[in-house]
Design a binder for these strands. Structure first.
Lengths: 256, 256
DNA sequence: ACTCTCTTTTGGTACTACCATTAAAAACCG
DNA sequence: CGGTTTTTAATGGTAGTACCAAAAGAGAGT
């Protein structure tokens, strides 16, 4: 007859959750600093008086929350991670991915966000940041002049520009939202970049916007943003209702 | 080190992650609908030709992402969860706990969000929604006239007003962001509501804003919002640099 | 029909053994 | 002595088995 007695310190309900909670609390209370290493699984197993599987599941949970990072091999183990904005962003991105979204809603939101961010960036960013933004915008433009641009690279550059701009607000919340959006909607944008028309105008717009920001001209910057999203909306509508989209005197070459 | 964009080379050697990714993909592609049940761990074990521990760790990861929910017992197992905003909110809350945000950042963001939402709400909301908003704002005001208001209820009402306003944009993204913020920052707000001063002015402001929205007066509404957040900023600064430790002489029953 | 018990399914825990990777120590050799 | 290679030990990752605990349904008994 085995001893079926549970004399453990962590016997309630799901042991793995209990372990995870205790470690998480230690991290949140800064009893363990980022960069520190947790004891090995086998040590924790003894410490919590439980099985290794339980420890592993607990660590797995903490890893999912981006609280720790797990390395293998000697000197491996669970290392406390530093906080990053992208962590919170990923979860929002996952949420967004599961929702079927009308493109108009996305565009509307992004435009409003861009406008707010731009105004803040103009008044907050330092010269270095502004310079970097303009430089990157020009790189984007240059890349588009090539006959066979790398789509993925373009998309990435666009993302980086957006995030760079968000950073310039010096407010991490905007950065967080922007990162989440970029993560969640990246696939959406890639299809857009297929259109030569969109690519060229986007690049030009980025350059114009960046220049307006560097020059400290918010109204000008906002005007470029409005133009950009107006164009985007038109393209969306054209894609959904491929009917003769001559709205104004806007010359669009529609040889897709 | 020049890099074309590398999507993660799918970290080989981690079977549990591979399993988790496959299931996650199936969920995201809606090959499995919310409410459906995944095969039991023992079945999955056979299907993926791996050990049960691997399966369990994969499921644990999906559970952390709030993609599935695990029940035990007969007819137990992993059930696909419906998507909910609170997921993103929780993750934001965790993010905030680890990296405390400056209140100014939060206030700044909320003000910009409120302004955008308000303008949209005025032009989009129908009469019914506007009426409901005003009604709820008045309830908030009424509650504050009582001598001993229920703090938790007040906070809840404030949250509902915010979300109701966000809904009125008829753009789900604003609603999600607002919900996530409400969840993530709820603890933050509660302390604010402790101040009598804040409570009264907030309630009055809500009423004014709601009336301006009903009346279709965006500028007036924005003005009230500006006033509200300006006041909030002042209170914050006062709280951080307490000139007088006096509590505004408001009576609190501290013995509950 | 109703209640109670039993059985089956299924997640949760424990334990063991072995593999793969990694960093550090030891051995090697010029 | 100095650099290189090999060995070793620490540690996460996987496999497999056994058993426990909860939950739902089937079946027995009234």
């Amino acid at each position: 007859m085995k001893s079926t007695i549970q004399f453990s310190p962590v016997t309630m309900g799901r042991a793995s959750e209990e372990v995870a909670l205790q470690i998480e609390a230690a991290i949140l209370d800064q009893k363990i600093a980022p960069g520190d290493r947790l004891p090995s699984e086998r040590e924790l197993q003894l410490h919590f008086n439980t099985s290794r599987g339980v420890i592993r599941e607990a660590l797995q949970a903490l890893k999912q929350k981006s609280l720790i990072e797990i390395k293998k091999g000697a000197k491996g183990g669970a290392y406390i991670k530093a906080v990053e904005v992208s962590t919170a962003g990923e979860s929002l991105a996952l949420f967004i991915k599961r929702q079927p979204l009308a493109p108009q809603h996305l565009i509307e939101f992004r435009e409003s966000l861009d406008r707010t961010i731009t105004v803040l960036a103009i008044s907050r960013a330092n010269e270095q940041e502004k310079h970097d933004l303009l430089a990157k915008a020009r790189i984007l433009e240059t890349m588009l002049e090539q006959s066979d641009p790398d789509m993925l690279l373009l998309g990435e550059l666009d993302r980086e520009l957006n995030i760079m701009l968000a950073k310039m607000t010096h407010n991490p919340i905007f950065e967080w939202i922007m990162q989440a959006l970029q993560l969640g909607f990246s696939s959406n944008d890639l299809t857009l970049y297929q259109g030569m028309d969109y690519r060229e105008k986007t690049a030009e717009n980025w350059k114009n916007t960046a220049e307006a920001i560097v020059g400290g001209e918010p109204l000008k910057a906002l005007s470029h943003i409005s133009y950009h999203y107006a164009m985007l909306l038109r393209l969306m509508e054209k894609a959904e209702h491929p009917v003769h989209p001559v709205q104004d005197g806007f010359a669009t070459n529609t040889d897709d």
